[in-house]
Design a protein around this nucleic acid. Sequence first.
RNA 1: GGGCGGUUAGCUCAGCUGGGAGAGCACCUGCCUUACACGCAGGGGGUCGCAGGUUCGAACCCUGCACCGCCCACCA
Length: 803
Amino acid sequence: MEPLYKPEGVEARWQRTWEDEGLYRAEPDDPRPTFVICVPPPNVTGVLHMGHALNGTSQDVLIRYHRMRGYNALWQPGYDHASIALQNVIVGLLAEEGIDRLDIGREAFVERCWEFIRQYGPHIIGQFRSLGASLDYRRNRFTLDDEYTKAVMRFFVHLANKGYVYRGSRIVNWCPGCASVISDLEVNHIEVDDALSYVRYPFADGDGSITIATVRPATILADVAVAVHPEDERYRDAIGREVIVPFVERRVPVIVDERVERGFGTGALKITPGHDPTDWEIGQDHHLLEPMVVGLDGRMNAEAGELAGLTQAEADERVLAWLKEHDQLEKRESYRHAVGHCDRSGDRVEPLVMLQWWVDMTELVKPAIAVLRDGRVRCTPEQQTKVMLSYLENIRPWCISRQLWWGHRIPVWYCADGHTTIAETAPYSCAECGSPALHQDEDVLDTWFSSALWPFATLGWPEQTPELARFYPGDVCSTGRDINFLWVSRMIWAGLELMGDIPFSAVNYHSMIMAPDGRRMSKSLGTGIDPTELIDEYSADATRYGLLKMSSTQDVRFSVGMIEEGRKLANKLWNVARLMLAQSQGVTPEARPQSVEERWILSRLDVTRELLEESIPTFGFAAAVTSLYHLTFDDFCDWYAEAVKPRLYDGDDDARATALAALERLLTLLHPVMPHVTEEIWSQFHDSRLIVSPWPEPYARDDDATRTLEHVRDAGTVFRRSATLPAKLSDDERRIFDAVVKPERQKSNGNAEAERERLRNEIARAEQMLGNERFVSKAPPEVVEAERAKLERYRRELETIGD
RNA sequence: GGGCGGUUAGCUCAGCUGGGAGAGCACCUGCCUUACACGCAGGGGGUCGCAGGUUCGAACCCUGCACCGCCCACCA
């Protein structure tokens, strides 16, 4: 064994070995209790990013921990077809070749997508492997596999049969860049600088006018009414009269609606149901027409008459010019407001009225609301429960159709008479008229429609497989907050609807790792840090450690120092193992503690075991790795190893056997976090595999040993500062003292006076507190008692130092 | 506009239900002591964002303010 731990080669070797020996596998006929993690399937469009690496590591810690604790632990890999994201990637790749997707057609385009999947799908799974993720790689699933597609079709038909899925004409978010509608959750509201134009609409009877405010003058062409608030005194006389829409000079009514904000603009709102969500809702209630003057390309369409073909900005100019000419533009003021943009393409979203497929959510989410309320599904951090609930309680219809080619095609067929047939597989004839001439809906489903089924479709649903029976419901879903609504909430209600049970009982939201400058890590900003480079430079073990240390509940800035800490830990472990193994050839590990430091380290190991048993299942990974670091450096190496070293050299077999037993226990505790280096060391003195070794049993704590060690530590501190060896040390204490505290440090004695000063101050403070009657009477007795003990100790120490 | 979180050492962050301000890195001093210089032993460094309040006692609880970040959102 080399003095410097070199992870190159070691990690890949163990990853191969563990997988080849089938140690990652979970089987349905394994009778032990199950532990199942639902892994967010990464998109195939990207490489592993920091979020994947952090999430993968925390899940792997959970899986390895539960595996060691004797669970039948299933962690199943897979990836998502990422309908809109991948389609955009392929469109971009084609564009580089100068090809338009419309030129090559749907079939060829989809084939290009599959080529991409075949090329990059294994790539991202391979990156999880190099992190040491102990997924059951045989069970890899893809959301567009035949079996999975069957589940998606069953889901759609199920919802349609229950009346939740319907086709309807509603206002949608149209993304001109993606040439598709998107759901509300895929819209980002971004602040933009606009101008608010105040426009006079003359009354049709020629008596005066009413002024409205708009940021989109060109949409005036599609106005069907002007609305005011029912209790707005200013407009009481206007209600029921007609106004003339400028430019198109159309007569429209003045209506009342409570959704109008009296305080905004003039308190009068032009109603354009074809191009604004609020207006659309008002239009629905008042049975207004929904004309549209903007087309799918974002330009003015044929309905815009002489403005047809212009961009909206150009059309705005033309309308404003007309208004000025006719003295109907009262004023313009600059105005900053949030406007919807497509999450994928960044294009400004165009609200349009279109015929699309929808899921009516209100009833579907009720069971999900219930399980979140009663704690059957718990979130960490728990504030997220409230966030999720407020989303579900205010849920709106979900638009699930997309005008894309890549994805699950909607299982709906139309005949020439316009009848609709909904079926899991292509029907031979129309369900209504029997016509065999059918054509399938051209659209595909929202990619998240299939993701909602992930926890059970990956287990074989709708088939009743042994896997499904054994591994559903699962236990944990670990993810980022960014897909809370898109994915997590949908798995919960879909699981309850289709399986009649929750998909998991705990959701862990990991922190977001920001770039060192505090900005979001992103490829486009150039702030991304590639975790595979960290693995190459620092090892997977060190990267895992560092990421876990960064995984607090809040968002955190990336700092390479955490990873370096992990590398140091691996190296430290390697070297203390080197010491112990070199001294213990042919010795069988067995805890036969003879001395106080041995009793003490076994006790310390057990304290840490208990701490890990509390923190790991509750996702407190940062606390877990911190305790492991201090256990290894401070307790195991700096105190225990130093103290026991002389006896190892002396050939004390009890000390050697105990050292190996303590090392074993340390490796076991560290294995979930740093699997490779611990397995490598383990293999130096075992034929078995650490990955499947049992988690340590509780060990009787030894408070006496702890007290002794603390006494030596205190004595050492006093000794160093005073250059005077304290008298009353027992034999055991003196031995540890000689081994660890090292007498030659006698020279560093310059601080004796400063130390006396400190102790005097402490004594004065404690005396003051104990002299405070209200403190003594009102503070809990144990606190007062502790203060008395401190006072005693300080006085003793001051005496020990002497003058 | 609504909601959530943050502000602690030069940097990145811990600090659980109120009771002696912590870690890692960086910095300074001394050590190549036969496991480890990716190390060992020590050290300096903080008005816990600001202002009030509750309490014997506040980084922690309450109120207000400032700044930063995130999520949600149909005031045109």
